[in-house]
Amino acid sequence: MSGPRIGLLGRLGSGNLGNDASLEVVLDLVRRRRPDARVGVMCSGPRVVSERYAVPAVALHHSAGHGPAAWRVLVGVVVDAVRVSAWVRRQDVVIVPGMGTLESTLHERAWQMPWTLFVMALSGRLWHTRVALVGVGAGAVPEPVQRWLLVAAARMAGFRSFRDEQSREEMQRMGLRSHDPVVPDVVLALPVPERPAPPARSVGVGVMAWSGTNGERGRAAELAAAYVVEMGRVVSLLLERGFAVSLLVGDDDDVPVARRVAAIVGEDRVTLVLPTTPAELVEAVASVEVVVATRYHNVVGALRCATPVVALCYAPKHHALMAMMGVGELCHDLRGLDAGRLVDQVEDVHARRQAVRAGLVRRLEEVRPVLEEHLGAVAGRVLRAAPEVPA
């Protein structure tokens, strides 16, 4: 008898290593608990996902090709609805693995991922396919159409869990009746290799293609340019203090930003580290004594490795994550960033790095059984897996 057809859906394989790390955790769960499953993925980068994870994958969105912009959007909306619904119909289960699935902290249009999620969830109801949002992030969504689509999609999902309390609270404020579980980000369950001793006074600075929120599209170029200048100032101050600086990225979109920051400070004075897989990102953040990072999952990756990290926060999710890990004081708001104060704190964290690392190791030991229990619940309720037999 053939096993269940399990689909994974999201912005996967498109260069965002945090999203791919979430996929790896859930895909590992499926393979361990339902080895008989027939797994498929609907994603942004089907070729990458298919080659890297040895699963069949199809494109998430249809490109309408030629014609006026409004026509291309209309054709894309209709074609995507048909394609997504047909794909969901072929599955027994569809899982959205982690990610900031229900937020709008970055640029997003209602007809893009919000529409896809709505069609996915509605199709799940129509075709009796179980839909699960596992450990997802959410945030305030000011655009009314986008907000309605995301809340409706979440409401129709048969299983939901959130990666922090503020995500659940935001969905409740937007109209979702939710008493769903809140668990740490699933990427904290990612396996990590043995950590070699990092070089002395090494700092990894994770930069990001940041250009404001979804509501600031008109100022995107201005905000992006200001971010590059400010990160150049931060790196210059770190170099003046005698730190060896590596510039890190967590998404393909971040690479040009890293190169621009390197050009500001002198390319021969910094090391560019451009990981292309979650494993390479983990290795990068484990190979320095302190991390300073903007992109959310660069912060998560550093915490997973118990590398002391100072977070440059563009959304409440950073504060929630850092507080959960016991290092809430190591947060700096990206807007109005004081480079001098930030570097002073990096110096202080570096001096206390062994104590900070020990605290992170203890917290990870507390987090691990919580995540294991939750993933076990996903296996039972969503995958319909048999209970694990203790060794």
Rank of each mutant, 00 (worst) to 15 (best):
S161A: 11
F162P: 00
F162Y: 15
D164W: 03
E165F: 01
E165Y: 05
Q166I: 04
Q166S: 12
S167V: 09
S167R: 01
R168E: 12
E170N: 11
Q172E: 02
Q172S: 12
R173Y: 04
R173K: 14
R173I: 08
R173F: 08
G175F: 04
G175T: 02
L176Q: 01
H179L: 06
P181V: 00
V183Y: 11
V186R: 12
V186Q: 14
V187S: 12
V187E: 13
L190W: 03
L190F: 01
P191T: 03
V192L: 07
P193E: 03
E194L: 15
E194K: 11
R195Y: 08
P196T: 04
P196V: 05
A197W: 07
A197G: 09
P198Y: 13
P199G: 10
R201K: 13
S202R: 04
S202K: 08
S202E: 11
V203L: 04
V203C: 05
G204M: 05
V205D: 06
V205G: 06
V205I: 06
V207E: 03
M208E: 03
A209Y: 06
W210T: 09
S211K: 08
G212A: 03
G212Y: 00
T213N: 10
T213E: 09
G215T: 13
E216Q: 14
R217K: 12
R217T: 07
R219Q: 13
L223C: 00
A225V: 05
A225R: 03
Y227S: 04
V228P: 14
V229I: 11
E230D: 10
E230Q: 14
E230C: 10
M231C: 08
V234Q: 03
V234L: 05
S236W: 01
L237P: 02
L239G: 09
G242N: 11
G242Q: 02
F243A: 12
A244H: 07
V245H: 07
G250S: 12
D251L: 00
D252L: 07
D254E: 09
D254P: 06
P256N: 02
V257I: 08
V257A: 03
R259T: 01
R260H: 10
R260C: 05
V261Q: 15
A263S: 14
I264H: 13
V265L: 12
E267M: 13
E267D: 08
E267Y: 11
V270G: 06
V270F: 08
T271V: 07
L274K: 10
P275G: 04
T276Q: 14
A279S: 15
A279C: 12
E280V: 07
L281M: 15
L281F: 11
L281I: 14
V282M: 14
V282I: 15
E283Q: 10
E283V: 06
V285F: 07
S287D: 13
V288W: 01
E289V: 01
E289S: 12
V290F: 06
V291C: 11
